[in-house]
């Protein structure tokens, strides 16, 4: 695993958009002065007449995207997660969610891994907000390949989508022939004692943790859950039935994210013991991304510790 390639999911987004633009004329892209960072700039370079910079005005951008979609186009609107999902929440809710228009809100710089910029930019509530909008599909790809494939999948699915992307380069573990399907998770490692359900950059951390746990004699299942809404309930149920213990991992608040989605589902169908790894009702702070992630327990070491303790509990 040491020599694995590292790329940010936002890079997969930029590449995926460019591929999509070449294939479909009705793709238009909006950005709010962050085209270089969100990677919509890759699309802009290829299709300058279909990329519209909205300036630093995210509220307007979301509604412009809705208007574009109302004329039959498929609008991708990007900014940092903090401004796309949080500042412009009500615009997304009313002009995109309520209207069910064909807008894909693709937000980069989600989570603690923004690092040095600190708490004002470390967006750990976006999934909670977006999940709360009726009919909104919520995605959080784990690597560059998955992000790129997700771009095409969300284009082909009519209606609003929120996709969270990351700033940080993370290991690319999917191969080019990986088939991404909205609403489907994947078992990366089978196991029987504890099931780790992870999303985003926590997926690779969970894979590493799975190996370490195996060395300690703990047989962990590792699941990549790129679609947080709608949740792959069949897979969650399978994990719960087979392992009886579930650990969720997300670079997001434990309030309203993947962990809460899993708990909500299981508590009504098959009450199962769950431990949630995520941001524990806190704001972040500045520092190099991996150090900050570690500070909040968002790393393989903490997953190992939580799973080992959990597996040994009666």
């Amino acid at each position: 695993m040491a020599d694995i390639i590292r790329k940010a999911t936002r890079e997969g987004y930029g590449r995926g958009l460019k591929e999509l633009g070449a294939e479909f004329d009705n793709v238009v892209v909006l950005d709010a002065d962050l085209a270089g960072s969100t990677k919509t700039g890759v699309f802009k370079k290829a299709f300058p007449d279909r990329h519209f910079n909205c300036g630093i005005a995210e509220a307007n951008m979301m509604c412009v995207a809705a208007g574009l979609a109302a004329t039959g186009l498929v609008a991708f609107a990007s900014s940092f997660a903090m401004f796309a999902a949080e500042r412009a929440f009500e615009q997304v809710r009313n002009s995109i969610g309520y209207t069910r228009l064909n807008v894909k809100v693709c937000a980069s710089h989600g989570g603690m891994s923004v690092g040095e910029d600190g708490a004002s930019h470390q967006c750990c509530e976006d999934v909670a907000l977006m999940r709360s909008i009726p009919g909104m599909t919520v995605l959080c790809p784990a690597d560059e390949v998955e992000a790129r494939k997700a771009v095409r999948a969300i284009y082909l699915q009519p209606g609003p989508v929120y996709m969270r992307l990351g700033r940080l380069a993370v290991p690319v573990f999917h191969s080019e022939d990986y088939e991404f399907v909205i609403g489907k998770g994947e078992i990366l490692r089978d196991g029987s004692q504890v099931a780790i359900i992870a999303t985003g950059l926590m997926v690779y951390e969970a894979m590493k943790a799975g190996e370490v746990l195996a060395g300690q004699g703990i047989d962990a299942m590792v699941i990549n859950m790129p679609t947080i809404k709608p949740l792959d309930e069949a897979l969650v149920l399978h994990a719960a039935e087979k392992c009886g213990r579930i650990v969720t991992c997300e670079e997001h608040s434990t309030i309203g994210g993947l962990g809460e989605a899993v708990c909500s589902f299981l508590s009504e169908t098959r009450p199962t013991r769950v431990r949630r790894i995520g941001v524990q009702d806190e704001f972040g702070h500045s520092g190099p991304a991996w150090e900050v992630l570690k500070d909040f327990g968002l790393c393989a070491e903490n997953i190992v510790k939580v799973c080992a303790d959990f597996a040994r509990e009666n």
Binding site: V28, D49, R50, F52, A59, N60, M62, C63, V64, A65, A66, G67, L68, A69, A70, T71, G72, L73, A75, E90, Q91, N94, S95, Y98, T99
Partner: peptide
């Protein structure tokens, strides 16, 4: 009805998007 509205300030932005979308097409 061409656009769902009610939350003030949003409709005019949607109208901008429509105008841009029509021009682009």
């Amino acid at each position: 009805v061409d656009m769902s509205t009610g939350s003030l300030g949003q409709g005019v932005s949607c109208a901008c998007g429509m105008a841009l979308g029509l021009k682009y097409q």
